[in-house]
Design a binder for these strands. Structure first.
Lengths: 239, 239
DNA sequence: GCTACTTTTCGTACATGTACAAAAAGTCCG
DNA sequence: CGGACTTTTTGTACATGTACGAAAAGTAGC
């Protein structure tokens, strides 16, 4: 078993299909049929190959998606490095968010720390921009890592909720959608006696679209994180 | 098709199995065999029922997990409502986070806005506490929703990354784990010329465990969110 | 008890990701 | 050219969630 393309020895049967051809076939499916259709069997058919042959070029489905992400990241414009450190963090995070939001198939694969270690150079530019911004603002290295990780969690959470919600209501981000319009009133209905504040909010729950939530939340988050720059180390028990 | 338990008419074959029995069987599997073993086929066997019979009591697997979450949430202690509004938000969010972190099987199901509409009363107490804290601090209703949603995204992201990462390295949260110790050096290796700040951080990437990251990030986030209380509406393009 | 009708239960089938081991198709040395 | 060896390719099999429709098992009216 191996995942070559960089030939180890030079003996044995030469591969008939390259990793690049498989990725190209995957992109073809993404564009033509949509990401729901990107299954291993269909990909194998598109590449003119047996299903199990795919496993010689990718470790598993997740590996395939990661390679696709790196592929597409190469076509992103590099992050904007002008502006204050704080603005650079915001810009890089937003770029990361927007790219992922455009690749709904990518969300299956984002939720692991190990994913970071497999990013290609283009994607790493964004991580570097965030970390550099934090350091330039005065964060310690530990704090810079903390800034990156926190933003990463927030971004992944927003992306996943958005993509997953869209899967069930494919009409996208309806600004007016209500969080409490679910189909099972018996379980989670609001009671003015028990949830007075939620009731008071009433139908304003869905008042802004997901983008606004992310934009505003990100700025609040970055400000809160940077306010601690240089002071107590993260890990400090003091609040 | 229906999901009764509250009898609609009174004619027809009476059910042999109740929703409660199925949930009980599911909890038995969770405790005895671990959550990886909670499949519909196994659950059906445990409940002494055919697989497809399950679909008369739950809409699908996701519905099953949501009902389990609400079940377990009933046994959580209510959130701590003493302290300042800010402290209440932090306490409620932490309680939510810790509960979800203890239920790795729950993470599959958290990533949709619609999930909120299906929460039972116990789980809603936490949401209400967060919203109430924000309002009491001086947030507008819209801002309070924004506070809740942002914290929700951050929490879900952290939980998902943690659970997913643990699935591949079942040894849990190793404090010393390095983000850049992945198995594919050819893709994502750090280059001092291109990622100087990341390189400078070196092996400090994994210096704190996930809990600390969440704790600290949450406080920074809440502070950043509350700093905007009452001022410009969210949605304001400024900043 | 018999006949409609309703509701619950279940058997079968399909798509999916992937493990395993056998088969196929090359290269290299003599 | 012949055999040994290596690498690639593939066929088969299994567990999973779930759609579909038929079978089973009760109730209500007569």
């Amino acid at each position: 078993m191996a995942l070559p393309d960089a030939p180890s020895g030079r003996t044995g049967r030469p591969p008939r299909t390259s990793r690049a051809e498989i990725l190209a076939a995957a992109r073809r499916i993404l564009e033509r049929d949509g990401w729901e259709k990107l299954t291993l069997r269909r990909l194998a058919a598109e590449a003119g190959v047996s299903t199990m042959t795919l496993y010689h070029h990718v470790r598993d489905r997740e590996d395939l998606l990661i390679q696709l992400i790196n592929d597409l990241a190469d076509q992103l414009p590099p992050p904007d490095l002008s502006g204050s450190p704080r603005d650079r963090i915001v810009a890089a995070s937003t770029a990361m968010h927007d790219a992922l939001a455009a690749w709904p198939w990518a969300v299956e694969v984002l939720t692991t720390d190990g994913f970071l270690s497999r990013l290609g150079e283009s994607a790493l530019r964004i991580v570097e921009a965030i970390v550099a911004g934090a350091v330039d603002h005065g964060c310690t290295p530990q704090q810079a890592v903390h800034v990156y990780r926190s933003i990463w969690y927030y971004t992944v959470g927003e992306i996943l909720v958005r993509a997953h919600s869209r899967r069930r209501r494919p009409d996208g981000d309806q600004p007016g959608e209500t969080l409490f319009s679910g189909p099972d009133p018996s379980l989670g209905r609001l009671d003015p006696a028990r949830q007075p504040h939620m009731v008071a909010i009433g139908d304003r729950w869905g008042e802004f679209a997901a983008q606004d939530t992310y934009r505003l939340g990100l700025r609040a988050f970055v400000d809160g994180l940077l306010a601690r720059a240089g002071s107590a180390e993260p890990g400090d028990p003091a609040t």
